[in-house]
Amino acid sequence: MTDLAPLSPFDASPAAVGRIVRREPVDWTGIAFLTGLAVVVLLPLIVTAVWAFAEIWRFPAIVPQRMGLGYWQDTLSRNDVWQALWLSLSLTTTVTVISAAICFPAAYAFARLDFPGRNLLFLAFLSVQAFPKFGLIVATATIFLTLHLVGTFWGVVLIQLVGTLLYMIWIPVSAFQGVDRRLEEAARDVGAGPMRVFWFITLPQALPTLFAALLITFVSTFYETDAAWLIGLPNVRTMPMVMISFINNALEVQYGAVLFVFLWVPSFVLMLAARRVMGADAFAKGLGG
């Protein structure tokens, strides 16, 4: 096709003259949705964030009358806040690690192995979530009372583990199911045994989605309140418990707002970082998208 004569400008010109630049139509529906979402999602966040820096903010004013870091100093100088933070972090880490140790192998079994009662067992795992959670916790609390687990670190760990099952089974199952069997067969083919196939192929392929499950579990466990309240108090005071007591007992909302910003920023940064590392589709994949 090299010997074609180049088009003369004469031939090309009518098309060029006839070209009309059309403007993209304005997507009003999209803008309306965006505005609605912004009002519903962002506005409460912004108001709370402003409260954290407001020292005086009385009714008719749209912006606070006086702003400052006074409440930050008050809140962050408190001993119980830091204690609760460390407790919450170690509690959440323990729950996430144990949950992963239990759930990931189970998820692999559900996804890849064929054993009797597989579907029934899978359903049993998920059905825990169908119970009214508060009732479940109250029932568990009565058992824990006799076992002397109420008000202990490990008691809270145990009860919070139950809450992680849904995400830590469900998401990893679809992560493992999403790994193409041919990839594993290709690895067997060039000489890898079943263990190495899992380690070098299946696990890395599923990893972004597994990581998403870990992150969701970590964040949701950190902010878990029902179990921490009924099983943990008074000895085990987690971060959300401290926040609740601040909000309930103090007339100033600023304490709660300060903690809100204090905790929201790191988890938001974590989520953003995770999105960058894993790609947005890891979450979607894990949730069956």
Binding site: D180, R182, L183, E185, A186, A187, R188, D189, V190, G191, A192, G193, I201, P204, Q205
Partner: peptide, 17 residues
């Protein structure tokens, strides 16, 4: 098993890692 056979397979779906 496949890993002990002197065979190598090229899959239709490429099956690249």
């Amino acid at each position: 098993p496949p890993e002990q056979r002197p065979t190598a397979m090229v899959f239709q779906s490429h099956a690249l890692w």
